[in-house]
Design a protein around this nucleic acid. Structure first.
Lengths: 217, 217
DNA sequence: ACACACATGTAATTGGTTACATGATTTC
DNA sequence: GAAATCATGTAACCAATTACATGTGTGT
């Protein structure tokens, strides 16, 4: 009876605003938790089905099989399940930041490549930041009175902080690299959409004098 | 003949320091890119095999099948493949931050839960930061002269910046929450179950005027 | 002889993405 | 009645995790 995290996202969204269709839920996810939590279509509908089967949400509207709008609400049981999930420690999934990875190996790349990556990163970050600022404005305008508001703001300010730090870093990074690599030429990069911020896992290099493995590569 | 990202990590590591066993490669990954790139056992050996088959690395040492140490080196072809991978735009994989997710839904949680999460986050972040600072020290001590050094430092300073921003945020977040949630009965990190939560529907803001997307819940 | 770290591997499964296929409703 | 957008779904795939199974070399 385990549920995957997609299930809890759905429950959480419905707990805040009930009676949404799958389509709407998806949109809501994107507009609210989207900046730190990506969901895919492929997961949504099957999960919704499963939640209905487990009676954590109830479906109203058309009969199954039809393609007409159906809307979902969370049940009391659903709220409980959500609540107990919220109470257990969050899991830190392994970080995966391809940008940093490519940057780390920058020495192996052709000249200019790393600078290009950083520039692309910078642009994405700026765009992302603009989006969050916009979101902040809208949230204040429409949702300031809602009970969840303080929590929402917390996630927002977290995001803003990370992005600003990233932006500050990118300036100095470019300066450093231009010094190190000489002049820049090319650009790689055509824009994509999503950005992410890495979230840590806690293991870090272990090293002790005696066994002294490779800390020097 | 697509390669997965694990393959490029291996190539990159071997490009920096050749002639390592699978075991060593894994350790090196952890000690260098580990803080922003998690790899799992399960991927390493099969990928290594595949790389050998594609002649991007060569294996020396014992014969296949044996469990004695084998060591791998990158080939010229391997370097080329790595180089061209480095040149293509990095991919931003969808963000997934369970901490923020739980925080976002904090209103649905029992009292103290969110504070507990933030405290846990704070601790992890501090530990992580300490680890990075340690790593920085070691890197300066042992690797300062190596050609990749400036790039490694870039990833490091990025991490430090993010962590410091996260730490700063967590302070204000705790302050905010303590104000908002009244007093804490901190229930840090051990699962709870049962709680009373009657509380009927919460009906909140409805969809607004026409046109614009629902930016409010 | 035993423990322990070094070392290599595989099987089962998850969790998720992408791409596609299709129907319903609104708007012009 | 065509187009756009709202809406629901599925199939194919794949990257990665987990847990397990096993062997080797060294030091005590």
């Amino acid at each position: 009876m385990e549920h995957k995290r997609t299930a809890y996202v759905i429950l959480g969204i419905l707990a805040i605003h009930d009676h949404q269709s799958g389509y709407e839920i998806r949109a809501t996810i994107e507009q609210t938790v989207g900046f730190f939590w990506g969901e895919s279509y492929g997961q949504l509908y099957p999960t919704l089905k499963r939640l209905v089967a487990d009676e954590l949400v109830v479906a109203g509207g058309a009969d199954t099989g039809s393609r007409t709008r159906r809307s979902y609400s969370i049940t009391a049981a659903g709220r409980e399940v959500l609540k107990s999930w919220l109470a257990i420690p969050f899991r830190d999934d392994p970080p995966r930041d391809e940008f940093l990875l490519k940057l780390f190996f920058g020495q192996q790349a052709a000249p200019g490549i790393s600078v290009g990556h950083i520039q692309a990163f910078q642009q994405k970050t700026r765009g992302f930041l603009d989006g969050l600022l916009e979101l902040e404005k809208l949230a204040h305008a429409y949702n300031a009175h809602q009970p969840g508001f303080p929590y929402w703001m917390l996630t927002l300010t977290y995001g803003l902080g990370q992005l600003r730090a990233a932006l500050a870093w990118s300036e100095t990074a470019l300066a450093t690299l231009n010094a190190a690599e000489g002049v820049a030429s090319p650009n790689p990069h055509s824009p994509t959409e999503r950005s992410q911020q890495p979230e840590g896992r806690d293991q870090i290099a272990e090293n002790h004098p005696s066994g002294a493995k490779a800390h020097h590569l």
